[in-house]
Amino acid sequence: MFRKVVFFAFLASVIFAAGCRNQPPQSRVALADEIRDDVLASNIITRPILQTTDFILGRGMVVTDYTRRRNDAGFTEVQVQGYSQASQVLRFQYQFEWIDADGFVIDSKTNVWRPYSVTPKARWSIRGTAPRTEAVDFRLKTRNWE
């Protein structure tokens, strides 16, 4: 009976810790699980369980914000920001589409799929620069890096 209680208490704490890990990392420095101090959420025993939990829950990337500005030459620059909830490196491809004031997509050789990878449990940012000064808006598409 006592064993069962301990086991369920341990399981509950792991799930609770896993839930806490769902929050965006507050620190400016992202230390990998393997090199930072052990905490309940990521010590050598619970880490595989949490990684499995992340995998089962399908945790991936979250977009939190984007910023936009015009550079000195009049081209729109954007930076899309977010964080990764995954326990492993996420590799994917992204593509920017630039849109003019009339809502038309600007045809450009720079509208290509580009590779990107995100550190586990860390913030990321993708930056794009419009190829024409007419661009006023953008769309960001992603796909799996096959």
């Binding site: 030459a73 050789k109 799929w113 419009a130």
Partner: peptide
């Protein structure tokens, strides 16, 4: 062609971002 597309896109974006032609 995918490599050339990517290289060209990176080059152009870098040039535009640098404002070197302003």
């Amino acid at each position: 062609y995918r490599d050339f597309d990517q290289a060209a896109a990176d080059m152009v974006e870098s040039l535009v971002r640098s404002s070197a032609l302003k």
